[in-house]
Design a protein around this nucleic acid. Structure first.
Length: 574
RNA sequence: GAUUCAGUAGCUCAGCCGGUAGAGCACAUCCCUUUUAAGGAUGGGGUCCUGGGUUCGAAUCCCAGCUGAAUCACCA
């Protein structure tokens, strides 16, 4: 492993600490009595002096001779520490200050400080250190981000590095933690809302023998003991309904779902949905319930019902607009699709310039028209209701129109946020709908649903009238935190794995005759494994190595061409 | 999957009409007991993403690849 100069220095400092009898990774608990924000918010100039013990990471140091200032970052924020040589050092040599603090500690190290709170001449509330404890040594330099008046200087902003090394992102970038704190608040607020009504949080299987409840390509895995394929769930809907059959009157689950599809700034292969099912309710009740829930979540998280999303302001104040899908299409295209057959719908698509192929059924065609012409227009929260029956195989037929279903989707900022039904509980109708899906699947629609026989059996025992609703939690958090990328609201978004560079040890290189002194140079020339030396032209290799020796002023004795030829031969024979 | 852009020091970036690789922060050494994005001075640090090609000579031009981002396509 090649270490940068700064990394090497930090390892030397680590040894320096141990040489002084200071354990850089102590085992003992450190009793913290205060957090940075609390110290600052409760400070009063005329109050009696307050003793505190705090701990955190050193984020900056300003050494002014015998006195220094440190910015210490803990979970709540940052606070300045004032350190003087004579206060923290007890011995004659002032080792704690001159050696430990000034030489052996670095930005990024965790330290504990015992001291008292005061205000500096510049007016900043600070802690005057009386005791310094090393809590953990950091061996890698953090990116240095500085802030003044909310402006970041030298921000650490390469998305690849931020997502791959979220821990660094969280340490150095202001505001990243806030997003995830808000994410937790969204979940807690929603959970409280449900619990207050007596609904029950449950866990259902992530590994499912039949991936049901949604239309999506699943991830497939294999169970060795049973020797069967298992699928990571694409939804948990069918399991929650089984629980309604079993007698629960209200169940919900925050469900991590997995879909084997494209990734972009609004899709991650694993994402979180919340689904809730309540018996003896219909989708009208669920609309009232959903808007009440979202209004509360928004208030709990942001303290207001309005959120800024990009340059738009979205109001989550009840009630939300409601419009049927047919009216929405009429509104945005001027075409009334009510009662049209598949042929007529295909013509409408052509007329509107929407691509339609033969695998698309009636439902899919209507969905296409809506997605293309209407969806993006609904910025303020809007319930789109009464979807065509072909698109909603788990949804109850509309009480007034057998072509439609009792379904709504909630559109916000031009995208679907939530989806809900009066759940289909007629087992015979449900079986017919599944069979229709199977026909679509045979027609080439690879997203059509599988038939879950056990689910049908459950329905045959009888499921009470029920309404269910699912909501995309990541998208909700994006709205609540004004983020446009799902990666910004997932702690560890999916990334292509980093390449692991396999490297042979020095001994392996020496075993083909390369002198120890030359191993590093051979590595530097781009050969980190002995195998990579195979089939190399010894002349070129010889030249490269001698060139590096000269260029890097290594002062090594150049190998002869015969030496290099032998190395390559040995590598070939391994 | 397509197109475009990007990859240079630990971090943020300049250099890109080919000719010895630069700045700020960080780091090191020295000075300094109330500083605050940055105290002062001096100094060290690079596989210019990888591999080919053109050339006397490539960070720079060309081709291919890798990784990421944006837009579009596909998909809840």
């Amino acid at each position: 492993m090649e270490l940068s100069e700064q990394e090497q220095l930090r390892r030397e400092s680590l040894n320096g600490l141990r040489a002084l009898g200071i354990e850089p990774y102590p085992a003992a608990a450190y009793q913290v009595t205060a957090l940075s924000d609390n110290i600052k918010s409760t400070y009063q100039d005329d109050a009696p002096q307050r003793e505190v013990t705090i701990a955190g990471r050193i984020m900056s140091r300003r050494i002014m001779g015998k006195a220094s200032f440190v910015e210490l970052q803990d979970s709540a924020g940052r606070i300045q520490i004032y350190i003087t040589r004579d206060d923290i050092s007890t011995d004659e040599e002032k080792t704690m200050y001159n050696v430990v603090f000034k030489k052996l500690l670095d930005i990024g190290d965790f330290i504990g400080i015992k001291g008292y709170v005061f205000r500096t001449q510049m007016g900043e509330i600070s802690v005057h250190a009386q005791e310094l404890t090393v809590l953990s040594k950091s061996l890698r330099p953090l990116p240095i981000v500085k802030y003044k008046d909310g402006v970041a200087y030298d921000a650490f902003e390469d998305p690849e590095q931020r997502y791959r090394q979220r821990y660094v992102d969280l340490v150095v970038n202001d505001g990243v933690r806030d997003i995830f704190m808000k994410r937790t608040k969204v979940f807690n607020s929603m959970r409280n809302f449900f619990n207050e009504q007596g609904y029950v949080e449950v866990d259902t299987p992530v590994l499912q023998p039949i991936p049901g409840g949604a239309s999506a390509r699943p991830f497939i895995t294999h169970h060795n003991a049973l020797d069967i394929p298992l699928y990571l769930r694409i939804a948990n809907e069918l399991y929650l309904k089984r629980l309604i059959v079993g007698g629960f009157e209200g169940v919900y689950e925050f469900s991590r779902n997995f879909r084997n599809e494209g990734m972009d700034r609004t899709h991650n292969p694993e994402f979180t949905a919340m689904e809730i099912y309540v018996s003896y309710k219909d989708y009208n009740w669920m609309m009232d319930f959903t808007e009440a829930m979202i209004e509360k979540v928004c208030l709990d998280v942001n303290g207001t019902t309005e959120v800024k999303v990009g340059d738009k302001t979205i109001s989550f104040q009840r009630p939300f607009k409601r419009i049927t899908m047919i009216d929405a299409i009429k509104e945005h295209t001027g075409i009334d699709i009510n009662g049209m057959n598949e042929e007529q719908l295909r013509d409408v698509c052509k007329q509107l310039g929407i691509e339609a192929n033969d695998t698309m059924g009636k439902g899919k065609l209507i969905d296409e028209i809506f997605g293309e012409k209407c969806e993006g227009n609904y910025i303020q929260p809007t319930f789109i209701t009464d979807y065509p029956i072909e698109m909603s195989p788990l949804c109850k037929r509309h009480r007034n129109n057998p072509e439609l279903t009792e379904r709504f989707e909630l559109m916000v900022n031009g995208k679907e946020l939530a989806n809900a039904y009066s759940e289909l509980n007629d087992p015979i109708d449900q079986r017919a709908r599944f069979e229709e899906q199977l026909r679509l699947s045979e027609k080439g629609d690879d997203e059509a649903m599988f038939i879950d026989q056990d689910f049908l059996r459950a329905l045959e025992y009888g499921m009470p009238p029920t309404s269910g609703m699912g909501i995309g939690m990541d998208r909700l958090v994006m709205l609540m935190t004004n983020q446009v990328a799902i990666q910004e609201v997932l702690l560890f978004p999916q990334m292509r794995p980093e390449k692991v560079i396999r490297k042979d040890s020095a001994e392996t290189f020496m075993s083909v005759g390369i002198p120890e002194a030359w191993v590093e140079t051979v590595n530097k020339a781009g050969f980190v494994t002995v195998a990579s030396l195979k089939e190399q032209n010894p002349n070129k290799l010889h030249q490269d190595l001698c060139g590096l020796n000269k260029k890097l002023k290594l002062g090594l004795t150049n190998p002869t061409k015969d030496d290099v030829t032998l190395w390559v031969e040995n590598a070939n024979n391994r």
